[in-house]
Amino acid sequence: MSRAIRVSVALVSLSCLGQLVAWRAAFGQRGADVRLARLDSTTRIVVAAVVDSARKTRLPTEPLVDKALEGAQKGADGSRIVTAVRGLYAELRSARAALGTGAAAEEINAGANALHGGMPMRTLSQLRSVSQHAGRARVTLPLTVYTDLIARAVPPAVASDVVLSLARAGLRDGDYAMFQRNVRLDIENGADAATAAQTRARGAALRNVGR
C-alpha cells in the first residue's frame, strides 16, 4: 500500500473518531437536562438515568425533572429525591398501561397524578373507554377534576365514581369547569365534600342528558 493511501486512511480514521467524540459531546449535553445541575452529583446521575429511561420508553420526562427540582428547592436529601422520582416514574408507567400506548403525555401525567391520588388502575382504564365512547378524545380534564376533588378531601372511591359518571354523561369542558366551581363553592359554604361532589355530579349529568 502506498504512503499516500496510508496517510489518507489515517486521516479518515481520525476524522471519524473526532466526529464520534463530537456526537457524544453533543448528545450527552442534550440528554442531561441542565436544570438538574441543582442536584448533587450522585442524585443527578440517578435522576438523569430515570429520566433517560422515561425518554427511551416514550414516557413524559418533564414531570420527573419537575419532581426532582421540587425536592432540590425544598432542601430534601438525595435519597428522598430519588425515591420520589422513581415513584413517579412507576406511576407514569402504570398510567400509560391503563390509558393505552396512544395516550398523550399530558394524559399520562394527569393519570399518574390520579393514581397517586388513589384512583384504581381499573377506573383509569374505564375512564378512557367511557370517555371515548362519549366522544371525548382526551381524558386530561376529567383526571384533573378527579385530582381537584381529592385535594378538596373527597374520598377516592367517591371521586372515581363521580368522574366516571361525568364522563358517561359526555360533559363538555365548560360543564367540567362549572362542576368544579360549584363543588368548591359548596365546600367553602360548609357542605360535606363527598356529598357536594355527588350532588353536583348528578345535576351536571341530568343537565347534559336534556341537551
Partner: peptide, 9 residues
Amino acid sequence: GRIDVATDR
C-alpha cells in the same frame, strides 16, 4: 419531540 410539545407542567 412528541412528549415535550404535549406536556402540561
